[in-house]
Design a protein around this nucleic acid. Structure first.
Length: 302
DNA sequence: AACATGCTCAACCGCTAGAAG
DNA sequence: TCTTCTAGCGGTTGAGCATGT
């Protein structure tokens, strides 16, 4: 449509941000607030494109950014949310205060994702966007980077420390979740008259509470596509305590088990247990009502 | 010490949705 | 209704660092 590339203008800085640039941007936003990113660089006196400023602010300069390694709890939540949402990093990040979509995406790709690297359906994907036609080839050498004064924001690595003391079978179990075909749920909901299956007693609680989400290919995206669930609904749904409930319940029942993924799902989502945690107000929302209907959990609305 | 390789993550790219005109 | 603009998203890249040889 003839739009000029965001960062193609001559004279704009690219690459790593300097401390001075960070300060300018931070000060400007502190005074003027976020937004109007396109005009921001000019107003703030930065030789950056607005897009770059926005990214820098959101992913690094924002005061509420949480620093440090992803905790075990956070990782657990990421795994659960990813199974539910696929690669919708911004939605996942929305459930992890202080974490950015970029950070979670990186963490997934470098840590969690590797656990599933051998899965036959490697990339769940997710988005209804077109696949980028971006070439993977390493083309021209990158433009010269700014030399001195660049902020190396990367914290020192602690790869040897991270190693989560995760029981081997936990990882394996989760991997199995992705690899093993699930038995067909007798009487389970059929979506689009297709082969919707679910885990009868899979180790992941979500498999039980949302059995229809697991397609024959065990691909979370299928769920999203099949139900044509839009982001707003997902967001609304996640704004309930649902994921938190899953997690909290996990933690509670996890006292005697080594990994939350090994928790007994039947305990986690027994009728009484779940009902007690869902407030009536939550079901005033029509989306949630239809969601529970689809899930065969009408009893929640009673 | 020097080099090779692997890993991490900030930044970039291309794209879409929605708002505005 | 159409076009343009803006914000935001997810995928990808590559510099810098850690680790291995």
């Amino acid at each position: 449509m003839g739009r000029s590339p965001c960062c193609a203008k001559e004279g704009l800085n690219r690459g790593a941000w300097t401390a001075m640039e960070d300060k300018i941007l931070t000060d400007y936003i502190r005074v003027n607030g976020e937004g109007k990113w396109r005009n921001l660089p000019k107003r703030a006196g930065l030789k950056r494109c607005g897009k770059s400023c926005r990214l820098r602010w959101l992913n690094y300069l924002r005061p509420d950014i949480k620093r440090g390694n992803i905790t075990n709890d956070e990782e657990d939540l990421i795994i659960r949310l990813h199974k539910l949402l696929g690669n919708r990093w911004s939605l996942i990040a929305g459930r992890l205060p202080g974490r950015t979509d970029n950070e979670i995406k990186n963490y997934w790709n470098t840590n969690i994702g590797k656990k599933f690297v051998q899965a036959p359906h490697p990339s769940p994907p997710t988005s209804n966007r077109k696949v980028s036609n971006q070439s993977k080839e390493k083309s021209q050498p990158p433009p010269p980077r700014i030399g001195s004064g660049v902020v190396r924001t990367k914290a020192s690595r602690c790869t040897k420390v991270f190693i989560r003391p995760e029981p081997q079978n936990s990882t394996d179990d989760h991997q199995k979740l992705l690899l093993e075909p699930k038995p067909v749920l007798a009487g389970g909901p059929t979506i689009h008259g297709s082969d919707c299956v679910g885990a009868a007693a899979g180790p992941n609680p979500l498999d039980d509470i949302l059995p229809f989400m697991i397609s024959a290919k065990d691909d979370p995206s299928d769920f999203i596509v099949d139900f044509e669930m839009d982001d707003k609904f997902l967001s609304d749904f996640l704004n309930t305590d649902f994921p938190t409930l899953c997690h909290d319940e996990d933690v509670e029942t996890n006292n005697t088990s080594s990994s939350s993924l090994n928790s007994s799902p039947t305990d986690l989502f027994s009728t009484d247990s779940v009902k007690a945690r869902f407030s009536n107000e939550m079901f005033n929302d029509s989306d949630l009502q239809s969601m529970t209907s689809l899930m065969g959990m009408e009893w929640l609305q009673e």
